[in-house]
Design a protein around this nucleic acid. Structure first.
Lengths: 249, 249
DNA sequence: TCCGGCTACTTGTCTGAACAAGTTGGGCCT
DNA sequence: AGGCCCAACTTGTTCAGACAAGTAGCCGGA
């Protein structure tokens, strides 16, 4: 937290959280904030841009910024590991590896992980819990260049992401997530302790290093009674497109 | 598309889509792009910041930017109506109102829509289709100040959002979405044409005007075999936090 | 050969300024 | 009273420059 604009963003977040600015009220003007914090307008703009991206405040040309949301939930647009996520909610994450095996990469594997076809990839089946209750079933495929480090981790490690950072300096920086719902199969039901055909929230994801190199891809199934995701969004430039663009069917 | 930085962002998006820059390759340096487009570095930075937010490219201090994703899917972080969404996928949206009734606002309604308790709110039950196939069941509650305009819309209108813009100049600018999975109930099953207990993707959302005024909130249930959502994300400052912060359990 | 440091390059941060474009509210005119 | 217009305010866009901080590749020494 060295950058001044991040400090200011954090102060504003806390002020909103404290309800110094209530939902629906207006933020001070950029020039006022700039004078208050003793920085230039550009720096203030960087700070409020962050809050806008998070969906905390709304922005339009000519009008003061408005506070949209108060309590800040763990948003999906912030990538973090299961253990981190649990931590921010004040709960304790656990994990347990059920199976671990090398197989040659299928065409799907090599496409997603940008590997040559047939390269050995590590398949891991892992159950994860929140405060001891099983909530998530992970079927993960790791690229061969990280697989040995993954194998070295003990089966009950609560945060694989954390361990890979500590041991290898590997940071999971980017993710793409595909979300849908599926019915629990026989294996899902048994391992998660739910009835067959129970609805599960499925997240298929690919995770990438800071260099843009894919590390793993995974099929994660969450017990929908225990977990849900939140997403903030906005039209951005789309409002303009809707004004001038062709009619939408 | 007046702003120069948006034009540049769009050109870069198309270049990535055309695979002038393939996935995993490096983008030109900011100074090169600035010289190429004849703008200052700040303008280029705005353009690439947009692509970074969309998850198309990755960025780290000291190293050139890297292309992360190629084909651009309809991301969840772009708020758009069901009809717009269908349009971008080249499919045709339809809609049909099944019931419409005023009720006094429950405490939940008044909290979500920022209305006085007991204000009349309009409940609408609507089935929506993609190319004629039923895929979505919407249970929406509209605030009293927009309800008359909603009632005036014919029951078969494919895009309520579009109509509210045309008739009232109302733009849905911000949204908050809560995503989970549920089993289809009796009514869900009948209206969507699926078996009871089929998994459905549920999205509970609140939509807000540009001024930050809540317009509607809705419980949307999607047939999970027909629809899925995608989300890009990144660690942002979290990579730093992970370095210096306390151990994560 | 391998490891170290050094250097050139690249992105991140911040400033101060100027103008464009949109919003809001008050005052004036009808 | 109602409606219109304008003026003050606010955010959006863009520029040019300076320095900080991190990366990657080159080169030399052990």
């Amino acid at each position: 937290m060295a950058a001044r604009h991040e400090e200011i963003a954090e102060e504003l977040r806390q002020a909103i959280d404290r309800e110094d600015y209530t939902v629906g009220s207006l933020l001070p003007a950029e020039t006022e904030l700039a004078a208050h914090y003793g920085v230039s307008r550009g720096t203030v703009r960087q700070a409020v841009a962050a809050l806008t991206a998070e969906g905390l405040i709304g922005s339009r040309q000519g009008a003061r910024r408005v506070v949209l949301a108060g309590r800040r939930s763990q948003s999906f647009t912030e990538l973090c590991s299961f253990a981190q996520w649990a931590h921010t909610m004040g709960r304790e994450a656990s994990g347990h590896v059920l199976s671990s095996a090398y197989r040659p990469a299928t065409p799907e594997d090599s496409a997603r992980l940008q590997l040559p076809p047939g390269a050995p990839v590590l398949h891991i089946l892992r159950v994860r819990g929140l405060d001891g209750e099983r909530v998530l079933l992970e079927r993960t495929v790791y690229a061969h260049w990280i697989a040995p480090a993954v194998e070295r981790i003990e089966p009950g490690c609560p945060s694989v992401t954390q361990r890979l950072y500590e041991d290898e300096g590997l940071v999971f920086a980017y993710g793409e997530h595909l979300i849908d719902a599926v019915a629990a199969g026989a294996q899902d039901a048994e391992l998660l302790g739910v009835r067959r055909t129970s609805p599960l929230l499925r997240v298929r994801r690919v995770t990438t290093t800071r260099e843009g190199r894919p590390v793993e891809w995974s099929d994660d199934r969450y017990r929908s009674d225990a977990v849900s995701f939140s997403v903030h969004n906005s039209t951005g430039i789309n409002a303009l497109a809707r004004k001038t663009g062709p009619a939408v069917s």
